[in-house]
Amino acid sequence: MTATLERLTAEGVAPWLDDLSRERLAGGGLSRLVSEQGVVGITSNPTIFDKAIGSGRRYDAQLAGLARRGVGVPEAARLVTAYDVRWACDVLHGVYEATGGKDGRVSIEVDPRLARDTEATLAEARALWWLVDRPNLYVKIPATREGLGAISAALAEGISVNVTLIFSLDRYDQVVDAFLAGMEEARSAGHDLSSMASVASFFVSRVDTETDNRLDKLGSSQAQALRGRAAIANARLAYEHFEKARSGERWRSLERAGMRPQRPLWASTGVKDPSYDDTRYVVELVAPDVVNTMPEATLRAVEDHGEIRGDTVHSRYAESQQILDDLEVAGVSYHDVVTTLEEEGVDKFAASWSEMFGTLEKELRTGA
């Protein structure tokens, strides 16, 4: 691991990779990132899998076998993605053991088309937990209103959960409540809380993209001065909410029973605007007990020229709230931005899932 990444981890940030493919697994690329760059976790999503399945030959043998068995597209999607995630869990198992289960985790996503159906989401989470069958798995459940009940119910059954697609501070508070409710039920059911884990994935760069687009339409000098400031401010305030929740008696009671903290995870940390520094969503969000899941290009950028200046979150709460207040004054509604992003996030992931189905259908026809 380079000195920069060592400093990042020393500050309490767990670097995860936001990518997964069979080529990366079979070619040893993931193992090298773990051993040489200190990657300690993996996240995946439908877009990542669609790209992986459609861009190489590593899936041909499995898909040909599924085609000969007459397996349909939805089940093929579960089997193909579960295969890769299970393999990644095995690659990361050494990290999982070395960190006492804190890291070494790999995420697989519930079909996002179920995001508005609590019971269907829970049923899918159960199926994926059983199918992958690895203790270092996270099942990703979106933080929609309907998803909150599925999050609590999955945790209550002993399923470790990555809560994804969080944009708003209010929704994050609801996620924390769902997490605590689920862990309380798990404790009552006799589950070993220390064997379970959860992260809350707060999406970052998309907040700037949406906010900047609105600021550009306003066109005023006041609006231009606020470009690129919303996402980091929003994430910093989320960390403040995390600290407040963690100091509460409800959380502390569960910690005394062995519960691990639900760490904030910074997702969508690849920079979309080329005029911005390509490490900003890493170096400006350094704090203890957080995860930053990065595309490989962002990981390499941090390794090459990222400037780790210590904790860049604490003591920035008042400044961050002022930025959100200034956006409202300038004419950009925070509530409307985060509501739009949640709705679009679910729709985009659902569209990616459908695209993956189209790719799988084509590959299954070819292999039949």
Rank of each mutant, 00 (worst) to 15 (best):
A88T: 10
W87Q: 13
A98P: 03
W87A: 11
R58Y: 11
A88Q: 05
A77C: 12
A98N: 03
A77H: 12
V95N: 07
V85K: 07
A61R: 08
S55M: 06
A82G: 14
W87C: 06
L63K: 06
L66T: 01
E97V: 09
G65K: 08
A98R: 02
R57D: 13
G56C: 11
E97M: 08
C89E: 13
L92H: 02
C89R: 11
R78G: 13
V85W: 07
T99H: 05
T99I: 11
G72F: 02
A64C: 05
R69E: 15
R68P: 06
V85I: 14
I48L: 12
T47V: 06
R78N: 14
R68T: 12
T99R: 02
P74G: 09
P46S: 07
T81M: 05
T81E: 09
A82I: 06
A61F: 04
L92D: 00
P74S: 08
G94S: 02
R69G: 15
D90A: 12
A98F: 04
E75S: 12
G70A: 00
D60E: 14
Y59S: 00
Y96H: 13
E75N: 09
S55W: 01
V73I: 15
G72D: 15
L92R: 03
G54P: 12
R69D: 12
Y59G: 04
V91F: 02
D84T: 02
V80Y: 01
I53L: 13
D84F: 00
A52M: 11
L79Q: 15
V91A: 00
S44T: 15
R57I: 13
P46M: 14
A64V: 08
S44V: 14
Y96S: 04
P74E: 02
G54T: 13
V71T: 13
Y96T: 00
G56V: 09
G70T: 02
L79P: 10
C89V: 06
D50C: 06
G54R: 13
V71K: 05
D60H: 08
V73M: 08
T99Q: 05
L79W: 06
V71D: 00
T81R: 13
Y83Q: 15
V95W: 03
K51S: 06
L92N: 04
A98L: 01
E97G: 03
D84K: 02
D50T: 15
V73P: 12
V85T: 08
T81L: 07
R69A: 15
D90H: 07
R86Y: 03
A76T: 14
V80T: 15
R57W: 04
A98M: 01
A52T: 08
A82M: 03
L79Y: 06
D84A: 08
V95T: 06
L63W: 03
R78A: 13
